[in-house]
């Protein structure tokens, strides 16, 4: 059996939603270069719906695939729903990850939560 599922390799080779949103409504960055994984998520949100999402990742194959899959899972979804996204859901959507790579899916979940937190705090400061 190969290290990664076909789905992981597909998202690694052809990552969806790669890039940057310059005027993003929420940006989240997690991980650090010391550990070898950094994910950055950019969200565009209109009426509490995630209308666009982009990512940049420094990391291994499963980190890139997890980021890509996570963006697919939240694109077009309401913010509340995106907040419910778990790392398990990301890993399952990829047809599983090796045990020692599960932390990549955790990073993807955290990156999204981080970006949504950023969005919420920006919203809050706008209201003030």
């Amino acid at each position: 059996m190969a290290l990664y599922s076909e789905k992981v390799m597909d998202h690694f080779r052809n990552p969806r939603n790669v890039g940057v949103i310059e005027d993003a409504d929420g940006v989240g960055e997690v991980g650090n270069a010391k550990c070898g994984d950094i994910m950055k998520m950019y969200l565009k949100i209109d009426d509490d719906i995630i209308t666009d999402v982009k990512f940049e990742t420094f990391g291994c194959g499963s980190a890139i695939a997890s980021s890509s899959m996570a963006t697919e899972l939240i694109k077009g979804k309401p913010v509340d729903e995106a907040l419910q996204l778990t790392n398990k859901a990301v890993a399952e959507a990829l047809d599983g990850l090796p045990d020692y790579k599960m932390h990549c899916s955790v990073l993807a979940e955290e990156a999204i939560k981080n970006a949504l937190d950023d969005y919420h705090s920006k919203q809050a400061s706008k209201k003030e």
């Binding site: 994984d37 291994c60 194959g61």
Partner: peptide, 27 residues
């Protein structure tokens, strides 16, 4: 600015078998 495992996987796709000292390749 890059990580070794991704590099290896993409080199493998190009038909080059190599290795890396990245953490991700060792678990």
């Amino acid at each position: 600015g890059i990580e070794g495992e991704s590099l290896l996987l993409l080199l493998d796709d190009k038909g080059v078998a190599a290795s890396s000292g990245s953490a991700c390749t060792s678990g």
